[in-house]
Amino acid sequence: MIIEIWTKEKYSASEEAALSKRLGHAGLAVEAARLSRLYKVDGDFTAKEFRNIASELLVDKITEKFSLNGRPHGLKGAYRAEVWLKDSATDPVGETVKEAVEEFSGKTARAVRFGHAYYVACGSELKLRHAVGKTLVNEIVNISRIEKI
């Protein structure tokens, strides 16, 4: 199960501007950008338990929202870039969340991995791929995929 968490729109302007600026450094003209944090939780939990983990453990309810079924991003013709650490790379956030999930739920999580999803509205997939490769992804430690949504 992938739990996707993002900052509510009224608080997200600065992180979105920072993402646009970062991609802009790599030559991409960004029309709009959103970003989410992803927690891939691998364990025998029910849908209700996953929802509880998200709402009671991982989300700051005042500033953030979450979804278990993907985020309604509100961008037309945008691309989604998903970035994870490779399984062979230490994931300190994932490991810490794994311990927290176990203490919270009383059940064992086989693994938790942490990643990001970036939603970017721009004119060129080719330029986006280049910009993501130069700013958000290091192939030595990351895996990623980009898809049009």
Binding site: L85, A89, T90, D91, P92, E95, T96, I140, V141
Partner: peptide, 12 residues
């Protein structure tokens, strides 16, 4: 090669 670098775990 890629094996020469890694990510740290400050909490540990």
């Amino acid at each position: 090669t890629t094996s020469a670098v890694q990510i740290g775990h400050a909490i540990n």
